[in-house]
Design a binder for these strands. Structure first.
Lengths: 335, 335
DNA sequence: TTGTAAGCGTTATCAC
DNA sequence: GTGATAACGCTTACAA
C-alpha cells in the first residue's frame, strides 16, 4: 500500500542508506546510482515520511504560533491574518509546516507556550505580540527554546525579532503633517510603556523638534487601552486646545474614536492619522489616513529569521532582527 | 537531557511497555503499578513524544486545512478566522494539532491538497469552502482520504460536511420582512449554481409562497461574483421596479453594493438584508442587517466531525453532517 | 498483570 | 561510493 524507502531501495537495487543519501543530496554518491534511485522514486511515487524523518533527525520542521483569542484583535485587526499568511508563505517555501494554537485567554498564553515547547512537536515558536514584561518571552529565553518575536521586545538582547521602525514611521507622518502646514498637532496614545508606544512617541517628539515646533504636553494624551472609546475621550481632552489643526493617534482604533468625537462636535478641519491601516479605516467618515505596517511581511520575515536560525550550524548568533518598512496610506482625513 | 519512556520505566522499575500501557489507560494494569508509574512520570516531568507515537501508531493527530489566499475573502470575511478559531478550539480539546496551508491561488488548491494527503503528516483534512464541481473534493473522495467539508457539497453522498441550513435562514429572513409589511422583495444573488445559492433562493421562493405572494422573476437578479460592484449593478436593475420596498442579498458584499446604489439614488425607504454578518456590515450607511452564519461553530463542528470519524472503529459511517444555526442580526437597514 | 522484542520509516555511524 | 545496522521513542503482539 504505502511505499517506503525500503521499496525504493529494492526497486533501485541499492541499500536504504543509499536512497537516503540521494534524498539528502549527499555529495559522495555516483551520478549513475543517483539517477537510478531517482527513477525508482518516481516510478513508485515515493514520498519520504516526515514523521519518521523527524524521529531520526530529532527535528520536526514544524513551527508553532500562539494566537490571542480575543475577538476584537483577531477580527478587526488585519495584522494577524496577514502575519499568518506571511509566515505560512515562507514556511511552505522551505518545506516547513506551521501549527497554530489559539490561547483561550491572556492568562493561559504562557500555558500554551509551555505546552508547545514541551510537546516535542515544534522546532521553534513565533510570538505574535509582545506585552511588557512578557513572561512568555522570559520563559522561552530561559528555556533556550528557539523563538522569534514580532515586535521589538523590551530587552532585545539575545532575542530574534522582527518589527517596523516605529520611530521612523511616526517621524515621517508628523513631518508630512507639518509640511502640509500643521503646527499644532495633538497626540493620542495608549499603554505608554509598550516599546511600540515609546518609539512612536519619540518619532512625534523628534519630528516637531526637527521642525522647530515646541513640544506642548497639553496636547499629548495617553489612554489605557487601544479602544475607540478611549480615542473619543482622548480627543475630548485635546479639544480644550482650540488651535489644534491635526491629531495623530498611535492606533486606528484610537483614531476612530477621534473621528467620532470630531464628528459629534461638527469639527471638519482637524486632520487625523492612525496606525495599522485597519480594514475599517477606509470606511470612516472621513476615510482615515493610516500607516500600514506590512503585517504579511512581518510574518514572512519572522518565519525566515526563525528557520534560518534553526538551520544554521552555530547557534551563537542569537541577536538578529529585521526591520519591515511601513507605508503611509493617504486618505481624506489627511488634509 | 530529554526524558523518554525508558527513563520513566527505569525510574518506576517496570518495562517500557508497562509505562506505555499506563499512558494509554490500558485496563489490565494494577492500580499499584499505575500509581508508581504516574509518580515517576511526574517526578521526571515526562512528556510523551508525539512524533515517536505517530510513527508507531501510524497516526499523527494533525489535521490539515487549506485556506484560499485571496486578500478579499480572507480579510473582509470573518468567516475564515472564526472558522479557524473554532476548529482550533475543538482540536486542542482533543489533543489534536492543526496545520494551515495558504494556497497561492485558486489553481493550486488541488496541488496543496494532494501534497497534504501524500505528506504522511496529517490524518485528515478540513476544506473551508466548496466550489461547484470541486475537483479537490473529488480527489479526496477518490483517494479515500478522511476529510470534512464546511458547506454542503453538491453531491453529499459519502461526504462528511457541516453547514448552515441556508434554506431555513433565508426563509426566516424573508418571512420577517413580510411580517414587517413588505410585499415586493427584490432578490440579488451571485453564482447561481452553488448549493448555498440554490438553497437561499429556495428559501426566498418558499417564504413568498407561504405568504401567498406571487414570485416575480423581474425582481430577481443573479450576478457573476460576490462583489460590491455586482451588488450595485444588481440593485440598479431591480430599481426599474418602482414598487420595491425591500431587497435581500445572498451575501453582505452584494448588500453593500445595494446600499451604495440606494444611497446614490437617495432612496431611503428600501429595507436591505445581507448574509454573513461581515465585520463591515455595522459600518454601512445605514448599518446593514445580516444573517450571522456562526462560522466559529461551523469550524468547531467540522473538527469534531473529522476527529470523531478518525477515531471511530468502523469507518462505514461516512455520511454524517452537522447543521449549525444561523442568527438574524437586526440593524437599521431592516425597516 | 507484566515483560520481551519486533516494528514504525527514516538517518547516521561505521565498516568495506 | 555503498551497504549493514543501530538508533530515534514509542506501541503492540506474543510470551510468560
Amino acid at each position: 500500500m504505502k511505499v517506503t524507502i525500503k521499496d525504493v531501495a529494492r526497486e533501485a537495487n541499492v541499500a536504504t542508506s543509499t536512497v537516503s543519501r540521494v534524498l539528502s543530496d549527499n555529495p559522495r554518491i555516483s551520478e549513475e546510482t543517483k539517477i537510478r534511485v531517482n527513477e525508482a522514486i518516481k516510478r513508485l511515487n515515493y514520498k519520504p515520511n516526515p514523521i519518521a524523518r523527524s524521529l531520526a533527525k530529532n527535528k520536526t520542521r514544524i513551527l508553532g504560533v500562539v494566537l490571542p483569542n480575543e475577538a476584537d484583535d483577531l477580527l478587526s485587526n488585519p495584522f494577524f491574518v496577514n502575519a499568518m499568511k506571511g509566515m505560512s508563505m515562507y514556511a511552505q517555501s522551505k518545506n516547513y509546516y506551521i501549527t497554530y494554537a489559539f490561547s483561550k485567554n491572556k492568562e493561559n498564553e504562557l500555558e500554551n507556550i509551555k505546552e508547545m515547547t514541551q510537546s516535542h512537536l515544534v522546532d521553534g515558536i513565533i510570538m505574535l505580540r509582545v506585552k511588557e514584561n512578557d513572561e512568555s518571552i522570559e520563559y522561552l529565553k530561559d528555556s533556550k527554546f528557539p523563538f522569534v518575536v514580532v515586535g521589538r521586545p523590551e530587552n532585545p538582547d539575545e532575542i530574534l525579532w522582527v518589527d517596523n521602525n516605529n520611530f521612523q514611521a511616526m517621524y515621517e507622518v508628523v513631518n508630512k503633517l507639518i509640511q502640509k502646514g500643521h503646527k499644532r498637532i495633538g497626540f493620542v496614545g495608549a499603554i505608554k510603556n509598550l516599546n511600540m508606544s515609546k518609539d512612536r512617541y519619540k518619532g512625534y517628539e523628534k519630528a516637531l523638534e526637527a521642525n522647530k515646533i515646541k513640544l506642548d504636553q497639553s496636547i499629548i494624551v495617553y489612554k489605557d487601552e487601544f479602544k475607540e472609546s478611549e480615542g473619543e475621550f482622548g480627543c475630548r481632552e485635546l479639544l480644550k486646545n482650540e488651535d489644534l489643526t491635526a491629531i495623530i493617534a498611535t492606533d486606528d482604533l484610537l483614531a476612530f474614536g477621534v473621528l467620532k468625537e470630531l464628528r459629534s462636535n461638527k469639527i471638519k478641519n482637524i486632520a487625523t492619522v492612525g496606525f495599522n491601516n485597519t480594514q475599517l479605516a477606509q470606511y470612516q467618515k472621513p476615510p482615515l489616513a493610516s500607516v500600514d505596517i506590512n503585517a504579511d511581511k512581518l510574518g514572512y520575515k519572522a518565519a525566515k529569521l526563525l528557520i534560518e536560525t534553526l538551520e544554521e550550524e552555530d547557534k551563537t548568533n542569537t541577536n538578529r532582527h529585521y526591520i519591515v518598512k511601513t507605508e503611509f496610506i493617504k486618505r481624506d482625513s489627511f488634509m
